[in-house]
């Protein structure tokens, strides 16, 4: 048994310690925000936060995650009560198929936590590990800019 703290709650998980976090999230904890895209850390669809930093959950074994704070998309808000970054993505209609967007939102959250007013260039550089195939990039950048503005206004 390995205990993982996910979205503020401890979870005792019965899985091989070598299991990548992604499989524990989707298969054991029924959290579907993080997506399997490549299993290689090349596309960012599986991005989660570990102690506030973006991490590819598809290549991070649970053995290294004890006593770390794991935050998934679900930890940022719900369908009825979306968080500020999610609200900005909805306002910009920043999705087509939407499969990459959870990873985008989580990675954007990490940026905005340490840089509340990023430039478009900083957003592009920060988001570059994450792939989008539908070509929603323009809207994603706009959504991150909007989230930054709205977070600032709320302060």
């Amino acid at each position: 048994m390995i205990t993982l703290e996910v979205n503020g709650k401890p979870h005792a998980v019965d899985a091989d310690p070598a299991t990548p976090l992604l499989y524990v999230l989707t298969d054991h904890l029924q959290l579907h925000g993080a997506k399997y895209g490549c299993g290689l850390g090349q596309c960012g669809a599986c991005t989660v936060l570990v102690d506030g930093e973006p991490v590819f959950s598809c290549i991070t074994p649970i053995s290294v995650l004890q006593n770390r704070r794991i935050t998934t998309l679900e930890g940022l808000g719900t369908s009825d009560n979306p968080g500020p970054v999610q609200r900005a993505f909805i306002a910009e209609q920043a999705a087509q198929c939407g499969f990459c967007i959870p990873g985008m939102i989580v990675r954007a959250q990490a940026l905005l936590s340490r840089n509340p007013a990023p430039t478009p260039e900083e957003i592009r550089a920060h988001m570059s590990p994450n792939l989008c195939r539908c070509g929603t990039h323009m809207r994603i950048v706009r959504a991150v800019e909007r989230a930054a503005r709205e977070l600032k206004a709320a302060k």
Partner: peptide, 27 residues
């Protein structure tokens, strides 16, 4: 009109076939 499918996609609701988990399901 705002897309009806977007809020669920942005909050991790299990709406993709990849997310489907049926009782007794195996992999």
């Amino acid at each position: 009109l705002a897309r009806v499918d977007i809020p669920a996609k942005l909050t991790g609701a299990p709406i993709y076939v990849q997310d489907l988990r049926l009782p007794g399901m195996v992999h």
